[in-house]
Design a protein around this nucleic acid. Structure first.
Lengths: 361, 361
DNA sequence: TCAGATATTGGGAGCGTTCCCATTCTAAAG
DNA sequence: CTTTAGAATGGGAACGCTCCCAATATCTGA
């Protein structure tokens, strides 16, 4: 193994220059761009145009049509900065995901979430402003987000316990919705019932006759990991099994972590593993394979997420399917509602998940 | 309804509704929020504060320090909407990726790109506004992006040929940079040399004695696919081989597509495949395996991207490593430069890539 | 010592909206 | 025919910033 540099002539970083000016001049756009110009052209006042574009009912129907006509034919779109400044809304929603690269691309959760949030925002005519958190995002980013003044509201996913960002958002008065619950403050959130999911997974393994069920947890200090672990413990206990801490290891939600966790657990003779996401399930299976252990015959593996690769993997993964798209969409709807209605009470919504039975357990 | 005990005690999962108002009132933040307030507190004028926060050199050093002191101790951040309206910049950069879900999560290219763009933007104190394109993004999104007025500039990746968005951006006068080149107009872009990459891959296969080298292309109508195919053709021709069109199939950059393409190619007895991304390489290998064909002994496979899974896959993937992070970072730097310097000429930059030799070929 | 720079500072005028209040118009009621 | 509520419209005043120009303070050299 090794790297091969580009063999023949290596050309890096060569700048090329063209002059654009002439071409640009000839292409100049001529749309009317301010509300005042539209007003003049429609023969009404600024205020009336404002009413029309904001769906105020106090406008004569004919006037409305005339204005709309001018608005459309001139491709007029109100200036968001001005709108915001004048006390209105920008139509921009922030999406904050404070995790590092490694998880972002191993876990299918995030692309699906991002996509569903983005799509729903498009549907309800909003733009998404995006933050991926670096480790030290606590420092600058929070204040940036909050004081950003361009955002109507914020959706936050994948928080750690006691994440300062929640308190900051809370204090800031900016409307926000969490994806995943938060226990220290009453906040708006959407979530799945992680304990119940773990219960489904473990119960299924028990039903299929497994006796020594291990679990690979995600990232410490997160609700989601804790809840899944609690569910695992509770279900085993309820079934009359003693929980063996040797059968519990942390995998950080990544494939390598799953592999390593399985290596730690393996000497303690598990006959099944509940990996709390699919990436770690794959890592665990990779380890088991290397040991010559058969899946599911010798050790059954259940994953979590129903990642796109789960169905085509060999063996295909038995896993818990979270309605990620629903979470994202609902978070957007909830946030829009908060922004527009400013309700006094917080809203929560818990989605159901399914156990998808395939080959791995 | 009721008071909310906020103490060191941990509150358990809240049921659905609470009234936040009282609590919020008591927590009201008291930071000064306008430039005028800061000015008053620092004993200077609005203008002087403005100069300080915009690094204008025409400020007395002691005055600057005094103002900065007040700014920092009050967590003052200028209002972006106001700033923009007054003719300044918002510090927000748009990132547009007009592709659907399926590719977004199969191709590691995107998460890495997103991450690198986002990180660099953080570094240079900018926010990222994010668009994932739906199929019909051409319609509304473009005008939204352009007329958005909140963006200082835009980075666009993964365009199709003749993508209307380019012409629209061009016309709009908004600063923008493409990731991947565009031939119909002189525009700013960063890219890799796809032809040369293909050349590296094919040459390597030739060097290892392969005689019937196939290729799996990506998405038709894209520069990147065409260039890689051109490179494939040219290299074979240069080596004195005739190009057999039966050995060329389209895979759409996704795993399933790679599988299907391999199925089409297989009857024509290839002894090697250059898959133009790793996802398709994996798909191809899956097909070959199912046919009982050994990789690399019977058929060698070269991928593209050096996806995170490429190294740990069995067999580990020989692949082309694009400097995706460099592309993203450079795109940001270039855009910032365009925004601030408004140069007359367009800038291009081509990055070198490496062939990473592993087990699959 | 004083004109003439030069360094520093202050304040007015917008930027394009929305909100609020005043005004005009209309139609129904007295 | 006048009165009046209500519908429809117009225009001033913000919102918080940057830009520009004018005003003041300080410094230079003859």
């Amino acid at each position: 193994m090794g790297t091969l540099p580009i063999s023949d002539e290596i050309e890096m970083c060569f700048p090329v220059f063209f002059s654009l000016k002439d071409w640009e001049r000839s292409q100049k756009v001529a749309d009317l761009s301010t509300i005042e110009e539209i007003a003049k052209k429609a023969g009404v006042s600024r205020s009336t145009v404002s009413r029309v574009i904001n769906d105020d009912p106090n406008v004569n129907e004919q006037t409305r049509e005339r204005v709309l006509e001018v608005v459309n034919s001139n491709n007029y779109v109100p200036n968001r900065a001005a709108r915001k400044l004048a006390g209105g809304r920008t139509g921009v929603i922030g999406l904050v995901i404070p995790i590092g690269v490694s998880r972002l691309f191993v876990e299918p959760f995030f692309p699906i979430l991002i996509q569903s949030v983005t799509n729903r925002c498009n549907q309800v005519n909003r733009s998404v402003m995006f933050w991926l958190g670096e480790p030290e995002y606590e420092r600058r980013s929070i204040t940036q987000i909050l004081s950003n003044d361009l955002l109507d509201g914020v959706i936050v996913s994948s928080l750690k316990d006691q994440d300062p960002i929640v308190a900051a958002l809370h204090r800031s008065q900016i409307p926000f919705v969490l994806i995943g619950r938060y226990r220290d403050l009453p906040v708006n959130f959407v979530d799945i019932d992680n304990e119940k999911c773990a219960q489904m997974a473990v119960n299924y393994l028990l039903q299929t006759g497994r006796k020594r069920i291990a679990t690979i947890t995600g990232v410490a200090d997160t609700m989601v990991s804790r809840e899944r672990l609690d569910g695992y413990r509770a279900t085993l206990a309820k079934a009359g099994f003693k929980v063996d801490d040797n059968l519990i290891a942390e995998g950080g939600f990544v494939e390598e972590g799953g592999y390593a966790a399985m290596a730690k657990i393996f000497p303690h003779k598990p006959d099944a593993v509940f990996a709390t996401n699919d990436a770690m399930a794959v890592g665990a299976i990779r380890f088991l394979r290397e040991q010559g252990v058969r899946v599911p015959e010798d050790v059954g593996v259940v994953g979590f997420d129903d990642a796109p690769f789960a169905a085509s993997y060999k063996p295909s993964l038995t896993t818990i399917a979270q309605p990620i798209g629903d979470l994202g969409r609902r978070a957007v709807d909830m946030l829009v509602n908060v922004i527009e209605q400013q309700p006094n009470d917080v809203m929560n919504e818990i989605f159901a998940s399914d156990l998808i039975i395939r080959e791995s357990a």
